[in-house]
Design a protein around this nucleic acid. Structure first.
Ligand SMILES: [Mn+2]
Ligand SMILES: [Mn+2]
Ligand SMILES: [Zn+2]
Ligand SMILES: [Zn+2]
Lengths: 146, 146
DNA sequence: TCTGAAAATGAGAATCGTTCTTATTAGTGT
DNA sequence: ACACTAATAAGAACGATTCTCATTTTCAGA
């Protein structure tokens, strides 16, 4: 999916929810599209610099996550990182550095995805838990933390 | 592994690190051994009630996590839940409720574990990321949140 | 058994990511 | 242009967690 296509999808989703796709929100989306993993409010703020204050940034992240345009990832030290939702970025998983908390995207072989999908279905059918999806983290140390 | 065996392992590990296995810490461990998933400081505090103040509880959790006796799980709303480390509780995975944040343990079929293990090895061999383990979350809604 | 070093405790202050409040500004449809 | 709704932004407030520090406990050696 092209970058402008994603933007169009986002605009559509937000519009139909009565949410405006403002400049600050476009900057957030642009930063996330260029990233290779979810970013925290602080990380986004350091990129977007002076054009979006932290309070507005947090609000935009919450609003867009609520509209299912962004998806949160809960990391170490109570830090929440956001990425484009699956229907926009595609389904994938993460490499998580246990040292610095950095998160990188990773794709799994289709065969493994299929196995995981089956597992979720099996759990759902047990009736004890309304399983809806899965998230795999490969944990270790990133290159920077060697 | 029996419950008293686990306690002995913990005592050994702490002792060799110069850390004392005090009564408050024993209570934390006991609560975690009875739980079916990781517990937060607040959840533990409501069980251990008046015998361990929050500040001491947090400190004990940090100390024992540092000694690799406990393992942290980072959930929604900046809430960290702790469980016994893998070498004590056995390797397993989690059901995570997207609504209330509750976490329950789940075991995977050995075949799937083996596949995941192989994935981690493959990632490690790529040299880009020192992969050491994996964590799978089956996400959905718990019975209480239906 | 004393005794001193090391570790733990506990109360409260402080931190810090995040959320809320509120007055003001901007966007959208008529 | 008007009315209505949503967004912005500065700062206060919040809450989970961490820190400080004076006191108490534990343990090893004398
Ligand atoms: Mn991702
Ligand atoms: Mn667990
Ligand atoms: Zn790292
Ligand atoms: Zn729930």
């Amino acid at each position: 999916m092209t970058s402008s296509n994603v933007e169009a999808q986002i605009r559509g989703r937000l519009t139909e929810a009565g949410i405006r796709y403002t400049d600050g929100r476009r900057q957030v989306v642009a930063a996330l599209m260029n990233a290779q993993g979810p970013l925290s409010a602080a990380e986004l703020h350091s990129q977007i610099a002076d054009s979006v204050p932290l309070s507005s940034l947090y609000r935009s992240l919450a609003v867009m996550a609520d509209a299912d345009v962004l998806a949160p990832h809960h990391g170490t030290k109570g830090i929440t990182r956001y990425e484009l939702a699956e229907w926009l970025a595609g389904h994938h998983h993460h490499l998580v550095c246990v040292d610095c908390g950095a998160v990188d995207d990773i794709e799994l072989p289709p065969r493994l995805e299929s196995t995981l999908h089956d597992l979720v279905e099996a759990v759902a059918e047990s009736g004890e838990f309304a399983a809806a999806g899965h998230a795999l983290e490969v944990v270790g140390r990133c290159k920077a933390c060697a």
